[in-house]
Design a binder for these strands. Structure first.
Length: 480
RNA sequence: GGCGGCAUGGCCAAGUGGUAAGGCACGGGUUUGCAAAACCCUGAUCCCCAGUUCGACUCUGGGUGCCGCCUCCA
C-alpha cells in the first residue's frame, strides 16, 4: 500500500506523512472571523480540509480536528455597531449560519470549535512570557511582537524582512521597532468590548488566539496546521513566531494551504466585494453539487467560479448518482453508516482501520479492489482529488456494464463527502399531477403517442417534472 | 521592488522522461413509439525559443502571458 504523501508549505516539497503519536493526528484548521455569512471561498477551504480529514480517518488515524472561531476583532465591532446589535448577538447569529452551511455541504463536525474570547487568559499568559523574554514590548498603547527577535521569521512564507521592507505597503508606525512587528494586545477605545490585562483594558491581536488555542487543546507541537493560502503571510508566519518563541518547539510539522476561489481571474474576497455567499449558491444548487465543484480541482490550485462550471458539476454528479443506482439497491445505501464515521472505538493494536474493513469487504472482487486501490493511491498522493474523481467515473462505467459496484461507488464518493443519494429529490405527487401521469399512460397504451408526448410536455412546462419511461412499463419522475 | 504559482483538445481539468486520465459540450451511430439514461465511434502533441537526452508535454536556461502574497482576508 502506498504511503500518504503531502505537500508541506514549510519545506515546499511533498513529504511522507508521519504523525507524532502513532495512530493519532492533531490537526488545527484556522476558522472564520464570524462577522458575516461565509462565502464560497470559505466553503472551499473547509471542504478541502474536511476531505483530507476524512482520508486520515479512513487510514485509521484518530484525528483531533480543531477549528476555531475568531469571535472578537475590529470587523466584528464595526459590523455590530452598523447593525445596531451587540457583538455577542452578531457572533451568535453568524456561528449558527456557519453550521447551517457546513451541514449543507456535508462537512463533518470538528472535534472542538474553540472561541477566541474563551481563551483570553491563555493569550495573556503567552504575551506575559514573551514580554519577560524581551521579545514582546510596549509600543505606545499596544503590545507588539518584535519580529527581529525571532531568527526563523519568514521561514514559512519564504520572505526576508529586508525584502519586505523594500516594497512595504505597511503603514509606518513610529512606535514600532520594526514595521512588521505585529500587535499582541491592543487597548479598547471608548465603548468597545474589553478584557482586563497587565497592559490595561483591551483585546488581543488576531494572531495570538491560535497560538493559545493550539497549545491548550493540542500541545506545543501539532501534526498539521492548515488554512487558506492567504493565511501563510502574515497570519501563520506570526503564529509560528509567537508560539516557537514561547514554547521553544516547532508549532506544526506539516503546513497545508488551499488555493483560492476566483471570479473572472480575480481572487474572491470581501474587500473586492466580488463574492458569493454559500447561501447564495445553495438557493438553487444542491450542496453536493457545490461540494463537487469546489473539490474537483487540485486543492492547492485556484478554481475559477462560474455558473457554467456549476452546471457542468451538476451533470457530472447526476451521472455518478445514476451509476450508483445502476450498480446497487439505493434503498439499502440509505441506511449505510458513512465509512468515515465508522471508526473503531477500541484503541490499541487490535484496531481495524476503515481502510482495512473496506479492503476486506471487496476482497472477493479483484476488479473492485483495483478501483479501491487506485482511489486510495490518488488520495495518498497529496490528496489528488481530481484523479480520485476520475476513478469514480471509471467505476460508474463499470457499474452500468456489470450491474454491480454501486456500493463501492457510493462509499468512495462518501469518502470525498459527496452524498450521492442526497440528490434524490422528493417530488410531491399531487392529485392533479397523478391524473396527468395516468392520462399519459393510457394514451401510451392506446398508442396515441401525440397525446402522450403532449402530456409529457405539460408535465415539463407546468410542473417542472420530467417523466422517464422504464423498461418494465413503469416510470420515474425527475425534477428539472 | 521582493517572493511564489499557473499556462494541456470548444470549455473544465489530471498526469508520466518513452508518444496524453476524467468531466461538460458538439457531431455520427446503437437502443427507445418518442424522450431520458446507457453504450460505441470521432477530436489535442501539451504558450514560445534554446539546451540536456536515444527520446521531453514532463528536466535545465531564457522569453511571453495570467494570477497570488508582501494591508484585513479561506
Amino acid at each position: 500500500m502506498s504511503k500518504l504523501v503531502l505537500y508541506n508549505t514549510l519545506s515546499k516539497k511533498k513529504e511522507t506523512f508521519n504523525s507524532l503519536v502513532p495512530n493519532k493526528v492533531s490537526f488545527y484548521l484556522c476558522g472564520v472571523t464570524v462577522y458575516d455569512n461565509c462565502h464560497i471561498g470559505h466553503a472551499r477551504a473547509y471542504i478541502v480540509f474536511d476531505t483530507i480529514r476524512r482520508h486520515l480517518m479512513y487510514l485509521g488515524y484518530d484525528v483531533s480536528f480543531i477549528q476555531n472561531f475568531t469571535d472578537i476583532d475590529d470587523k466584528i465591532i464595526k459590523r455590530s455597531s452598523e447593525k445596531g446589535v451587540s457583538w455577542k448577538a452578531l457572533v451568535k447569529t453568524n456561528i449558527s449560519s456557519f453550521f447551517e452551511d457546513m451541514d449543507a455541504l456535508n462537512i463533518l463536525r470538528a472535534s472542538v470549535y474553540p472561541k477566541a474570547t474563551d481563551h483570553i487568559r491563555e493569550m495573556i499568559s503567552i504575551i506575559k512570557d514573551l514580554m519577560e523574554k524581551g521579545i514582546a514590548y510596549q509600543a505606545g498603547d499596544d503590545v507588539c511582537f518584535s519580529v527581529d527577535a525571532f531568527e526563523g521569521y519568514g521561514k514559512l512564507s519564504k520572505k526576508k524582512l529586508e525584502d519586505l521592507v523594500a516594497g512595504s505597503r505597511v503603514e509606518v508606525s513610529t512606535e514600532k521597532k520594526n514595521p512588521f512587528d505585529f500587535v499582541l494586545w491592543k487597548p479598547a477605545k471608548e465603548g468597545e468590548p474589553f478584557w482586563g490585562s497587565p497592559w490595561g483594558k483591551g483585546r488581543p491581536g488576531w494572531h495570538i488566539e491560535c497560538s493559545a488555542m493550539v497549545k491548550k487543546l493540542l500541545g506545543h507541537t501539532i501534526d498539521i496546521h492548515a488554512g487558506g493560502e492567504d493565511l501563510v503571510f502574515p497570519h501563520h508566519e506570526n503564529e509560528i513566531a509567537q508560539s516557537e518563541c514561547h514554547t521553544d518547539h516547532p508549532l506544526a510539522n506539516y503546513w497545508l494551504h488551499n488555493g483560492f476561489v476566483k471570479i473572472k481571474d480575480e481572487k474572491m474576497s470581501k474587500s473586492k466585494n466580488n463574492f458569493f455567499t454559500i447561501k447564495d449558491i445553495l438557493k438553487d444548487t444542491p450542496g453536493v453539487v457545490l461540494r463537487y465543484f469546489l473539490m474537483k480541482v487540485h486543492y492547492r490550485l485556484p478554481i475559477h467560479f462560474s455558473s457554467d462550471g456549476l452546471e457542468e458539476s451538476k451533470q457530472a454528479v447526476q451521472k455518478l448518482a445514476e451509476a450508483v443506482k445502476a450498480g446497487a439497491n439505493v434503498d439499502s445505501l440509505k441506511t449505510l453508516m458513512p465509512i468515515s464515521n465508522d471508526i473503531d472505538e477500541e484503541l490499541g493494536s487490535n484496531r481495524i482501520s476503515p481502510q482495512d474493513r473496506l479492503k476486506t469487504k471487496f476482497s472477493e472482487s479483484p476488479e473492485l479492489t483495483e478501483f479501491l486501490n487506485r482511489f486510495d493511491g490518488a488520495l495518498n498522493n497529496d490528496f489528488n482529488f481530481s484523479e480520485a474523481v476520475s476513478i469514480l467515473f471509471d467505476l460508474s462505467r463499470y457499474c452500468y456494464k456489470n450491474k454491480k459496484g454501486g456500493l463501492l461507488l457510493f462509499l468512495l464518493s462518501e469518502r470525498l463527502g459527496l452524498n450521492l443519494v442526497e440528490l434524490e429529490s422528493e417530488i410531491i405527487v399531487t392529485e392533479e399531477l397523478q391524473a396527468i401521469i395516468q392520462s399519459r399512460n393510457e394514451a401510451k397504451q392506446n398508442r396515441n403517442f401525440d397525446e402522450s408526448d403532449r402530456l409529457r410536455d405539460v408535465l415539463k412546462t407546468t410542473f417542472g417534472v420530467e417523466i422517464v419511461d422504464q423498461k418494465d412499463g413503469g416510470y420515474l419522475l425527475k425534477e428539472i
